[in-house]
Structures are given as C-alpha cells and as structure tokens.
C-alpha cells in the first residue's frame, strides 16, 4: 500500500462505493426483500447506534481481550521458538517436523477438545487463538532468522560480541521485518478465529452478537458485528503498518 500514491489510494474507494450503491439499489427497487437483505443505510445506522451502546461495546471489548491475549501469548512463544529453531541445531531438529505436522492441521477442529479440557470460558478461546496465531509468527521468525546474512553475525562477533549476545544484538533485529510480517498475518488470523469461536459456543463477544441476531432473525443486526470485526482488523493492520515504519526505518521498503 505504501507504494501507492494518494490518488491511487482514493481510486480504491470506487468499487466499495459501487458495491454499496448496487446493494442499496437492489433493496430500493424491491429486488431483495429487506428481511433477507437490509439496506446498507439501515445497517450503517444500526452500526452507529451500537457504537454508542455500552452493551455492544462490552461485547467488542471481550472479543478484543481474547484477541490480544491470544496474540501476545503467540508472540511470546513464537518469536523465541523461531529464533532458537533457526540458530540451534538441536531445537531446529525437533521443531521443524513438529511444525510441518501441526501447521496444516485446521486448529478450529481442536476447539471441541479445548472446550472439554478448559471449559466454555475465555481460556479455551484464547488457547485457540494462540494455536492459530502461533504458526504464522513462528514460521516467519524461523525463516527470517535462518536467512540472516551470516556475515552480519561474523561482523558482530569480530567486534567482540559473544555468541549468545549475537542472538539479541544481530539475529533479533535482523529478523524484525519478518516478525512484523508474521504478526500482521497472525493478527488477522486472531480476528477471524476469535469471532468463529464466539459464534460456536459463547455467551458474549462479537461472534455471539451475530449468532443472537441469527436466532432472532434480526437481519440488520447480523451485519453489525461483521463490520465491527472488519474495522478492528483494519485498525490493527494500520497500527502495525505504523509500527513497521517506526521500527524498520533502516530496512529496505516493503509493502
């Protein structure tokens, strides 16, 4: 995105507006009955209304809590594991086959097992988020650390840095771009997983708001949590892009 000029960024609004107009037209002309497809204006109005509703905000807050708790745990596990796996032969030999086996497992299928051992509360949802967010971070860190130019490490070693010291002074900063890429993916994943877990079994959170609307056949209400999660995802993505610009000032540009 950063490579796009301002005008090109604006062009992107056109299809979104067109889609909204098409949607509005379909409702206005009576092609789609409002019970099946509410008008976008009605949806937006409800969204605005909900943004001022403490109950709705509480649901969003719970979703955010689970999302961040899971993401941060995944980060705290994934980065050290990835760094160690890439720099230590023994750890790598154990880690690589485990990742190869566990990465393609659809983690959502583990959710029933998590419910059985951790209950229906926050814990099972957070662990599910960890399970899904861990692999993008772990893989990105591992690949980034494995690709660090050995001569960077050598230069530091020659300048007097100890072998262990290079892990923090060279490998970690050199891997930072990959870690941020992995984190960006993990955040999107976390948004999606926490929402789905809340849809499957929950009494609170944005996913639950959607399920409740489905049960009560409130079509307008169904769209609101979907918009909310999209906005959350966009905001997190933007925050991370900002962090990237700050932290990676010296690295080559990447979008």
């Amino acid at each position: 995105m950063s490579a796009l000029s301002r005008s090109e960024g604006l062009i992107g609004i056109v299809p979104i507006l067109a889609l909204l107009l098409l949607w509005q037209a379909a409702v206005s002309t009576g092609m789609a009955p409002p019970a099946l497809l509410p008008s976008p204006l009605a949806v937006l109005a409800r969204f605005a209304q909900n943004m001022a509703d403490p109950a709705f905000l509480a649901h969003a807050g719970i979703t955010l809590y689970r999302l961040f708790a899971g993401f941060l745990i995944a980060l705290a596990l994934g980065v050290p594991l990835g760094l160690l796996g890439a720099t230590n032969r023994g750890v790598g030999a154990v880690l690589k086959p485990l990742v190869r086996v566990l990465a393609p497992v659809p983690k959502i299928a583990l959710y029933p097992a998590l419910i059985l051992s951790l209950g229906f509360g926050d814990a099972s949802k957070i662990v599910l988020v960890v399970a899904d967010a861990l692999f993008p971070i772990l893989l990105a860190t591992y690949q980034g650390a494995a690709m660090v130019e050995p001569k960077l490490v050598w230069s530091a070693r020659a300048a007097g840095t100890s072998r262990g010291g290079t892990l923090f002074k060279v490998i970690l900063p050199a891997t930072l771009p990959s870690i941020l890429t992995g984190s960006r993916i993990a955040l999107v994943v976390a948004c999606i997983v926490v929402f789905l877990a809340e849809m499957i079994t929950s009494t609170d959170g944005l996913g639950y708001v959607l399920v409740r609307a489905v049960r009560n056949f409130q079509t307008v209400e169904m769209f609101v949590p979907l918009i909310a999660i999209s906005v959350i995802g966009l905001a997190l993505n933007g925050a991370l892009a900002l962090a990237r610009r700050r932290l990676l000032a010296g690295f080559p540009d990447e979008d």
């Binding site: 230069s155 000032a249 010296g250």
Partner: peptide, 10 residues
Amino acid sequence: FQEFALFPWK
C-alpha cells in the same frame, strides 16, 4: 566483506 554486511537497522 564484499557484501559490506552493515547492520541495516543502525
């Protein structure tokens, strides 16, 4: 080194 091997973050 031929590749300079400068720390890009510094």
